[in-house]
């Protein structure tokens, strides 16, 4: 009994500090870090604020991470966004996910981002995980030509037949702009 109190004092502030840190740490980052340790695949979790976080994954782990996110309460996809980077010949695909059921998670938007190359623009579809990805994935397919494997209805959505095989949201598709001419008195 006499030896223990001597050993304790340095430990207690540490524990308190840890507890305080955990309290400060938002529930979002706690949940995401728990998920990360449980997942056992390399993911890069970055919590930007109480309301925003980004998870970068390789496309081979996309489905596993999406399943894990769903299991901790993220129940719908808000948007599916692709960005074209012609310099590196890659597309970046972003899923913005959030929750309706968990009121804490509903305050947050988590961005799940992954990259695909021009050579092999395919990704596993997240439709089996989140049904709400249906419209976003279909539009991303028609605008960028990124194939989502496993999507039940991967066809053009908004564009005309002329756009079959033409992907207008790629940076290589240029918009023709007209200049503005103003007649000035001579």
């Amino acid at each position: 009994m006499s030896a223990q109190p001597e050993a304790k004092p340095p430990q207690v502030p540490q524990q308190q500090a840890q507890q305080a840190q955990q309290k400060q740490e938002s529930s979002l980052s706690r949940k995401l870090n728990e998920m990360k340790t449980r997942l056992n695949v390399p993911v890069n979790v970055k919590v930007e604020s109480e309301r925003r976080a980004t998870i970068e994954v390789d496309k081979s782990n996309l489905l596993a991470v999406a399943m894990a996110l769903r299991s901790i309460g993220f129940d719908h996809v808000k948007t599916v966004t692709a960005i074209d980077y012609p310099e590196t010949e890659t597309f970046e695909v972003l899923y913005h996910v959030s929750s309706y059921t968990d009121f804490e998670l509903a305050k947050t938007i988590v961005t799940l981002r992954t990259k695909v190359s021009y050579k092999d623009p395919t990704l596993p579809s997240l439709h089996p995980v989140w049904e709400s990805a249906w419209t976003g994935e279909r539009e991303t397919y028609e605008m960028f030509g990124i194939r989502f494997e496993g999507h039940p209805d991967l066809r053009r959505l908004f564009l005309d037949e002329d756009f079959e095989g033409v992907y207008p949201m790629r940076k290589s598709y240029k918009v023709k702009t007209e200049g503005l001419f103003v007649d000035r008195p001579a």
């Binding site: 719908h76 808000k78 059921t101 989140w130 709400s132």
Partner: peptide, 25 residues
């Protein structure tokens, strides 16, 4: 269904989900 299909706004709230951006963010 409303949650799985990603319904929004009055349609979502008509199905018993309490969600409004004005309250949550």
């Amino acid at each position: 269904q409303a949650i799985a299909w990603g319904a929004v706004g009055p349609n979502l709230r008509g199905s018993g989900v309490y969600y409004d951006v004005r309250k949550f963010e």
